[in-house]
Simulated assay, not measured.
Amino acid sequence: MSTQNKYALITGGSRGIGKAICIQLAKDSEYEILINYKANKEAALQTLKEVEAVGGSGQIIQFDVSNFESVQTALNTWQEQQPDAIIEVLVNNAGITKDGLFMWMKPQEWNDVINTSLNGFFNVTNQLIEKMLLNRYGRIINMVSISGLKGVSGQTNYSAAKGAIIAATKSLSQEVAKRNITVNAVAPGFIITDMTADLDEATLKKMIPANRFGTPEEVAHLVAFLASKKASYITGEVIGITGGIH
């Protein structure tokens, strides 16, 4: 089978870290890039344009990771349209924040964050894992956060979701390792994206030993490595990319 039929799916791939990962995988691998988006089709098409600009190729695919039926329908339809295609790499990147002190947190703010980050991980990975097992190869990379490692005040919902994915990463990696499938998590600290645009960078930099925010590209290099054949003996790991925050 030609590499033309092998895909890397990046959820939430239209902006920020997800977009950087799409572009880096297009540069570093021969995978077709499958860019998932929920609502912003323009941004997804822009990411695809940038993937093509660096010599890659790909497609966009619309589904809401938090909705099991939406995920199932979109991926099944996609597979029927290209029966020879195989998704070998999955980057679970889609996530949202709804920050606030726990005492004031509304059930909706808790549920929305859990549904997108944690249930999104289940919905997409569960849909693709069987094929990876049958093919005896796969790379699953879960984008988590420093919030899930050390906790961040005002992010109890986000920390809960990301901490749960960290634990799931460790368990799932043990179930599938014999079939050459690796499952790892990447935990960024403060990265320059839309999500951190409202933060007080000057003050926060003082907490960071490297004394700066990271870039989406720095995260994307790490993900591209984990998605490669070179990383075949790394599994069940949570790799921080935080500028030294612990």
Score class of each variant (00 low, 15 high):
M1Q: 10
M1A: 10
M1R: 11
S2L: 13
S2Q: 07
S2I: 03
T3D: 06
Q4V: 12
K6A: 07
L9D: 08
T11D: 03
G13R: 02
G13E: 01
G13S: 01
R15V: 12
A20R: 00
A20S: 05
I23K: 06
A26V: 04
A26N: 02
S29D: 00
Y31V: 11
E32P: 00
E32A: 11
Y37C: 00
A44G: 04
L45I: 11
Q46H: 13
Q46W: 00
L48Y: 06
K49Q: 14
K49L: 06
E50D: 15
V51T: 09
V51L: 11
E52W: 05
V54W: 14
V54F: 13
G58M: 07
G58F: 09
Q62I: 01
D64S: 06
D64A: 04
N67F: 02
E69R: 14
E69F: 06
S70G: 07
V71A: 02
Q72G: 04
A74V: 01
A74E: 02
N76V: 04
N76T: 13
Q81W: 00
D84R: 05
V89M: 09
G95T: 05
T97R: 13
T97E: 14
F102S: 15
M103K: 11
K106R: 09
K106F: 03
P107E: 10
Q108G: 04
E109M: 04
N111H: 11
V124E: 14
T125F: 14
N126F: 14
N126W: 14
Q127S: 13
L128D: 08
I129K: 03
K131V: 12
L134M: 12
N135R: 14
R139V: 07
I141A: 07
N142P: 00
M143W: 07
S145N: 11
S147H: 10
V152P: 05
V152N: 15
T156V: 14
N157A: 07
S159Q: 04
S159C: 14
A160E: 03
I165L: 10
I165F: 10
I166V: 15
A167E: 12
T169H: 13
S173E: 11
Q174F: 10
E175P: 15
V176D: 03
V183T: 02
V183K: 01
V186E: 08
P188C: 01
P188N: 03
I192M: 03
T196F: 06
A197D: 13
L199S: 06
E201H: 13
A202V: 14
L204F: 09
K206G: 09
M207D: 15
P209L: 13
A210L: 14
A210R: 12
R212F: 08
E217K: 15
L222F: 09
V223I: 12
V223K: 03
L226K: 06
S228F: 09
S232I: 08
I239C: 01
G240D: 11
I241M: 06
I241Q: 11
T242W: 00
G243T: 09
G244D: 10
H246M: 11
